[in-house]
Amino acid sequence: MITFEAQCARLAEVVGIEEASTLLDWLQAHPQGQLDLSDCTHIHAANLQVLMVKRPTIAALPNHDGLRSWISAALPPQVAA
């Protein structure tokens, strides 16, 4: 489930595949948009590749241990632009 705010998208619990296109659209419309993954437990692979391709700023990593380690590996912190 994703909640979109002005400059922040909050991903919570399980983010399903249908949401990948919404997330992509939002990231294209908000190039400076940040993501809050703290309450997220799983994102579908389609969402993962959206994040890997679009490389948005991750404001908060998931609290969920397993997902956090995967997200960290997939999206290594970038040098701040």
Binding site: I17, H42, I43, H44, A45, A46, L48, Q49, M52, V53, G66, L67, W70, A73, A74
Partner: peptide, 25 residues
Amino acid sequence: CFFKGEDPFYLMQQCPEVAWFAVDY
């Protein structure tokens, strides 16, 4: 694969006894 109902990320996360992993696009 998504059109076959697959979620490779979820499948990968459940792989038994993973010591190290990486993912690329």
